[in-house]
Amino acid sequence: MVSVLIVEDDSAIRSALIRALTAGGHAVASAATGMAGLSSAVDGRPDVVVLDLGLPDIDGLRVLPMLRAVSSVPVIVATARDDERVIVQALDAGADDYLVKPFGAEQLEARIRAVLRRLATATPDASVTVGGLTVNPVTREVTVDGIPVELSRKEFDLLYLLAQRAGEVVTKREILAEVWRQTYGGGDRTVDVHLSWLRRKLGETAAAPRYLHSIRGVGIRLVDPSADSGTAAGGSASGSS
């Protein structure tokens, strides 16, 4: 059980979040203002804080450094502004992750899990290795057979997501939600284009894949090319609901 503190001024969202997270088996506390949130974060010692940026009393971007001064609790920022600058500011101010409204309960839970997992595995070497491919999320460096590969931000995020779940089929919908924080998918070639670029940079093509295998109509699976490719496709493709 994870204890979550929700700092959100909109009562409808607040109660919806409490209901959703409680249903998911979490202990949930909530605050409607930045000041109340700060004191709850200090007194209640939650495992994770979900912080809305648009608070009535203090801007969420100013709550972050105050919170960071007294606590190292992981913070997921929820914002209605998908402005890149705001998100970068929030991450720089100490947020661990972010969500753009509107989002679903599953997404929020996935973020909470991811943040806590990162916290648990925050060892000096957190890199993921699949065959000759090494992805280091701390230094954001990628090597293939020891040779460094230059990736753009989104390309890195995409590869890291796939590498973390090596052998599993990851749906494009999941990728859009995880990497692009878009809850609605479809009609958009963004993932495809980035995958193609990623293939180029890893030195492979769709016709002759090594690490990145497209499963038509389902998603993408990252595999270790040195292992036998005849193993069953990952079973956790979570449909397209």
Partner: peptide, 20 residues
């Protein structure tokens, strides 16, 4: 920015409740 905020906030509540 305000428009974005005002429109997305109620949709978020709606989206969360549909999960239930």
């Amino acid at each position: 920015a305000d428009l974005s905020h005002r429109l997305r906030t109620p949709v978020t509540a709606l989206r969360l409740d549909t999960d239930l």
